[in-house]
């Protein structure tokens, strides 16, 4: 129950943060952080796939509604959710942990979380920005946007995780 509440709160908070604040944070003219993907990254391991995909789709659509890009963020988020299941299946052994772990920095350790966040952020940003431009002739420009935005997003993900780091450790 608490888990559902935390995640619902996280959903609202991240969407609000994204559409009201982060959308206006710009570096080098065109690069924005997309911190809202943290919601999909932090869903608990035992989330069933249908719920995972539905939630990813929902958060994508919510961001889309506020940025006039219906379907764009949703597409990228659904792809992100799929790669999340792949990465978790490859790297996490199900019988290895004692009591319901979550894919957070505090529980899974820095190394694992860093690669997890890095790969998924790159995948999400790549699909998001490629679908937005949809032109092969601008691929260099798009790729540089992917990397700079990813860097920006990753920094924010780690800041967010470090802020809530201690609270979870105590529990």
């Amino acid at each position: 129950m608490i888990k559902i509440l935390t995640n619902a709160l996280r959903f609202i908070l991240l969407v609000a943060l994204q559409v009201f604040l982060l959308k206006n944070m710009v570096i080098y003219g065109l690069n924005v952080p997309y911190l809202y993907i943290l919601f999909v990254l932090l869903l608990p391991f035992e989330t069933p796939n249908w719920l995972l995909f539905t939630l990813a789709f929902l958060i994508g659509i919510s961001v889309d509604l506020f940025s006039d890009t219906l379907g764009l963020h949703a597409t990228a988020c659904v792809i992100l959710a799929f790669f999340r299941t792949v990465i978790i299946r490859v790297t996490v052994q199900e019988d290895n942990y004692d009591s319901d772990p979550e894919p957070t920095l505090a529980i899974m350790g820095f190394r694992w979380f860093f690669f997890y966040a890095l790969i998924l952020t790159l995948i999400h940003h790549f699909f998001l920005l490629t679908f937005e431009v949809f032109k092969f002739s601008e691929i260099i420009n798009t790729l540089s946007r992917v990397f700079i935005s990813s860097l920006f997003t990753l920094i924010l993900i780690f800041i967010a995780e470090l802020i809530f780091f201690r609270k979870k450790e105590r529990k």
Binding site: L52, F53, G71, A74, V78, T85
Partner: peptide, 21 residues
């Protein structure tokens, strides 16, 4: 392979929205 099937279903929905819009 349920993850893959969910991917296909939601991808079809969202890309339809994307193209229509």
């Amino acid at each position: 392979f349920n993850a893959f099937f969910f991917l296909i279903i939601y991808l079809v929905i969202s890309i339809t929205l994307l193209i229509k819009n």
